[in-house]
Nucleic acid binder design. Structure first.
Lengths: 211, 211, 211, 211
DNA sequence: CTATAAGCGAGACGGTACGTCCCGTCTTAGA
DNA sequence: TCTAAGACGGGACGTACCGTCTCGCTTATAG
């Protein structure tokens, strides 16, 4: 999507790069030391040596900051794989997510953002759009290609498929009773795929309301 | 654990029953009006017409209060069904959870507790023990009976099984992109059971680390 | 004015006396160190070792705090003297004000309150009522008695009289070009009284609007 | 101190006249809308459409700006009248001040400057020198001429005389309990003059400390 | 006719204080 | 001894201005 207007020519003093760096560093450090819930905008500003208004100018919310941090740390997750085979595509996607979440800081950030989206509804939309939505887009592309290749039935419910795929990961992320590692991710993918192969008598489509 | 001494005969003014009622009512009302994140201990005390120390004495945490409320509202979920058939037992368990979560207040409470457990690590253990742990106990009993009946292989990984079963529900609870209704619960159960029937080449057990 | 209801019987934890003491001490110290304009609610709370909400609970405004302090430090000023002679009464009143204002802290507080009442109109009414108004009441009583004794004409304009009496003091207070001492106060009183003795052709009353 | 070099011939872009105009207009408008205390440098810059550094370059202080505005709006007050008679000279001076202060904007500006000089000691000197000092100079010239003509005793204390003259005006300005109008000014002048005519037993000079 | 320099708008920046909200603890008096 | 009330120290919230800075553009004189 090309911007046809030559760009609005920014006026005034340009944004300082060092602020970004310092705040990111502080965010990482505080996340490590106090956990997501223990991080405050006040503390971020203090640790980063930055004025509070400056902080609020660029990241109106703690969630916005950690969202940026997460996406920066796991860029590959949002690219659409295309190996020509559904199993390989899903494998890359889901194991990629698991790999990102195996980094303790990313884990904490992701869990924190999930939590914050529940407690502060105003942060929900951005979280939804900026993280979950992108992931869903990727999944939809993969599924559409697989359907075009005949690997999946045309009446598959992608929403359900996505929940079966990501639900277990998020559950482990939040419940922490067992490691969220590559092996786990692989087995979840296998399980869901297994399902799609043995189709009958399975019903992928939403059932019509029985009268 | 039975108390053999005739009872220590508590001295002083006995605990007021009306406090419990008033606080529960206030908790429900505030949850409806402001959402879990908007409820404060301060507000609860004010709304219930109860002193703050009294509140803290019985419910040291917002989470403790809503945990009590949740369990009171969905008692059936923690009973172990026994229909003599795995499919029926799981159906009852999972659809029971979905039914409880279809009540908006229970939904909000559960999502809020999940969130709080992430942000305030000190509340995590109680949440884990009092809610997730009990559910897991129920599931384990069901699975053990099914294995005894030969409905499930003996080397099944119950942790993975639980994640596949409850993960999608919790995911929908938190992400809210589609209804968490009875139909959804039924399809998740069917999916996971389907999987266990078409066992090979599936590996249910945790793989040994390949050297 | 007696309160007939037996008093509302205060409930809850009673107000801490130590807070009052600590805040007063901090107020005096900061006034000395930084001047009225340099005192902040933040700094007061910090210096007194008191929470900000506590501070705001009792003194919604810096001005309210220093008003209390001033009145406590100069109680005699608000009592009505009665020597049976106008000159003596005025002498006591005006020289009392000057004496209070000769204490550097009281000076600074009074000047600051005058200033704040100009810049923050919401503090003006309390300043007016709590300080200037009381002084005016005292003056009016003195003048009324003097008129009853025949020392002053009945058509005297007490507002003008008051301005002539206190204006020079306040002017010196704010302009600081010369000491606001007892001698100055005495001479101002003499001057104004001198005037009232040599009445014609002076007009004390407000002139009727000439048509 | 005359500059003997013909003038250093300033280089670079000359000072924009429109800035001065715009800022003055903004100052007047904001003073009317929010009062002196509600005017901020930030708001001035925004309203005038002027950069903050530009504002600070020419008026380092809010007080400096309004001082300029006041002097521009009441030029006559700083000229020395010479009617050959003390009463007429004082009349012109004091009634001129009152006339200037009867304009609501000038009133507000003057009261604000008085206040600011108290709260921000760094602005006091300029206020003192640029406003009060000039007025005192004028008064001193008037008094000196009157003494030369024999209208006043040679040992008169001009400081006291000035306080008696201007004090009541400033008091009314700040306390606002009654109109600061021409009639009031005239009566104050009359009162002070009356005093000087009936000299004995009055003592104008500062009394020697009685041993 | 170009180079230089200051004026200028915009606005980012570190900072301080604002006044409010809630936390969890405490101290009362009354039940 | 429990209760309602509420004061308390503390700390974070998000906002408003402060006064300084860094930009790129404009407008003039000087060379």
């Amino acid at each position: 999507m090309k911007e046809s207007v030559p760009s609005p020519r920014p006026r005034g003093r340009p944004r300082s790069a060092s602020v970004r760096v310092a705040v990111h560093a502080a965010a990482r450090r505080l996340l490590r030391e106090k956990g997501y819930g223990g991080v405050t905008m006040e503390g971020l500003a203090r640790t980063a040596g930055v004025g509070k208004p400056t902080l609020y100018r660029w990241w109106p919310t703690k969630a916005a900051l950690y969202l940026e941090l997460y996406r920066e740390g796991a860029p590959g997750v949002f690219q659409v794989p295309d190996h020509g085979r559904l199993a390989d595509d899903l494998d890359q996607l889901v194991r990629g997510v698991a790999a990102a979440l195996s980094e303790p800081l990313q884990r904490e950030a992701m869990a924190g953002m999930f939590a914050e989206a529940q407690l502060h509804p105003e942060t929900f939309p951005e979280f939804q759009a900026g993280l979950l939505g992108m992931r869903r887009q990727v999944l939809l592309r993969i599924l559409a290609r697989a359907q075009a290749r005949g690997e999946l039935p045309g009446d598959l419910d992608p929403l359900l498929f996505g929940d079966l795929l990501f639900g277990p990961l998020i559950y482990r992320l939040l419940v922490r009773h067992a490691p969220l590692d590559d092996d786990f991710a692989r087995r979840v993918v296998e399980q869901v795929l297994q399902q799609s192969r043995t189709r009958p008598p399975w019903r992928w489509v939403r059932r019509a309301p029985t009268p």
